[in-house]
Structure formats: C-alpha cells, structure tokens
C-alpha cells in the first residue's frame, strides 16, 4: 500500500541499522500501568514510535448472554487503530487486518489468563493504537498483559511480545516500520517468560531452517527484555519505590 522505493540503507557495514540501533537492540520501551480511571485495569506503552493504550474490564456479565460459557470465562479482545494513528487517515471501521490482530492477541493472551476461575463471565480487552509504527501487535500485547495484571485478573504468567526479522540477510531484533516494508522477513513472537512457553508465533517472509531458529531465539531474548520493563511498570504502580 503506497510503498515508496527508497534508498535507505537498512544495515550498514558496521552493523548499524537505519534508525541507529545495533542488530540485537530493541527500540526504546516505556510502559505505565493504571493510566485510566474508569477501566478495571489499564496500561500505556510507547514502543519506539508506537503509542498504544489498553483497557481491561471484567470479569463481568457477558452480553449477549448466548456467548457465555458455563464452565469457564471468555476473553474478548478488540485491537483498534485511531484514524490519526497513521500518516493517511485510516477508516475507523474495523479492517480485515484489525480483526485478524484482535484474534491473534486474544489467542496469545488466553493461555495466560485463568479464565476457568470465572465461569459465565467475560474479560474484555480494548486496545487503542494512537500512533502506529512497525510491530504494533507486539506492543499492543505487552500493554494488554500489563493491563490484565493491573485489573487483578489471575494469570499463570505475564505475556511479553517482541518481533525479530531478517533485514539485509541478517537476523535482527525488533523490526521497525521501514524494516518491515523493505526487509525480508518479520516474525512476531509472544512468550510467557517464567513458564517458557510461546503463545504467538507468526512469520511473514522466507527463512532457512537455521535462520528460523536464530530468529525465534532473537525474538525470545527480546521478549525477556520487554518482560523486565513490564515488571517494572507494575512494581512502580503497586509498590512505589519501596524495597521488595
């Protein structure tokens, strides 16, 4: 969609990428928990140029009632991009891409949330992308996991997400928008760091088996970096500067 052929250098001789990062360096990440008053739990994340708000309600009554499950709760997720989140106005109606991302985020969070404790209820996760850059699904997942923990919903583990990919024949961590459009592969991964389980794995592009292995390892390392930041966000909100 409107991709311009540019002459940007994705990776120079010194191993520095187009935005000045090293190959195993993520973008700047900032997470703040509990930013909204009316939601049960919320989080705001800045992941490079991504700016995303997540709000969580529940567990609460399911409406429409026929969606309710009698032996466990359900999780609903909406990923939505604001009309001003991209350079050309985005139609606010849910697009094919947003519906897909809502689904994959829901499925990435489901293994972590202990829905079996709350039969006949729903946990709603609303994600608003205020500003989009590459890798917004991972950033959205990171914010959603912090918002769920902020709401006090029992979770087996946090969910941390980060992408890796192939740019100029090199596996790099945390693909940005330019690298996503010009690069050779993009692999978003969501990971439960303490249980060591992957809950989301997508791949757009072609990788050899060796590259695939390296790519997933790189992405999981990224997830672990993100996890520390999520942890800090929650500890800052609940425990302040008190020593643990």
């Amino acid at each position: 969609m409107g991709v311009k052929k540019t002459d940007i250098v994705l990776l120079d001789d010194k191993g520095i990428r187009c935005d000045g990062r090293k190959i195993d360096e993520p973008r700047n990440i900032m997470i703040k928990a509990g930013v909204l008053k009316n939601a049960n739990g919320s989080a705001y994340i800045e992941f490079g140029e991504n700016k995303i708000l997540a709000g969580v309600f529940g567990p609460r009554d399911v409406h429409p009632k026929h969606l309710a499950n009698t032996d466990r709760g359900i999780l609903r997720c909406r990923y939505h991009m604001e009309p001003f989140s991209v350079s050309e106005r985005k139609n606010p109606a849910p697009s094919r891409r947003e519906i897909e991302i809502s689904k994959v985020i829901k499925e990435a969070l489901e293994p972590a949330v202990m829905l079996e404790n709350f039969p006949r209820t729903v946990v709603d996760v609303y994600i608003e992308v205020l500003q989009a850059d590459g890798g917004s699904r991972c950033a959205a997942l990171d914010a959603a996991a912090v918002a769920l923990a902020d709401a006090g919903i029992p979770m087996r583990d946090m969910v941390s997400a980060c992408a890796a990919g192939k740019v100029a024949d090199t596996i790099v961590l945390d693909i940005n928008n330019e690298e996503d459009q010009e690069g050779q592969a993009d692999m978003p991964v969501a990971y439960m760091p303490n249980l060591e389980k992957v809950t989301l794995l997508q791949l757009d592009g072609v990788l050899t088996p060796a590259e695939y292995k390296k790519c997933i390892e790189t992405a999981i390392n990224g997830c672990k970096i993100v996890y520390e930041i999520q942890k800090k966000a929650l500890k800052d909100k609940f425990f302040g500067d008190m020593s643990p």
């Binding site: 972590a112 923990a149 029992p154 979770m155 087996r156 583990d157 946090m158 439960m192 760091p193 303490n194 249980l195 942890k231 929650l234 500890k235 609940f238 425990f239 008190m242 643990p244």
Partner: peptide, 9 residues
C-alpha cells in the same frame, strides 16, 4: 513476605 506480580516464582 515479598512483593510479586503474575508469573513470579
């Protein structure tokens, strides 16, 4: 006693 978040061992 210890401060914990989900997933902490």
């Amino acid at each position: 006693r210890k401060y914990v978040i989900p997933g902490d061992v």
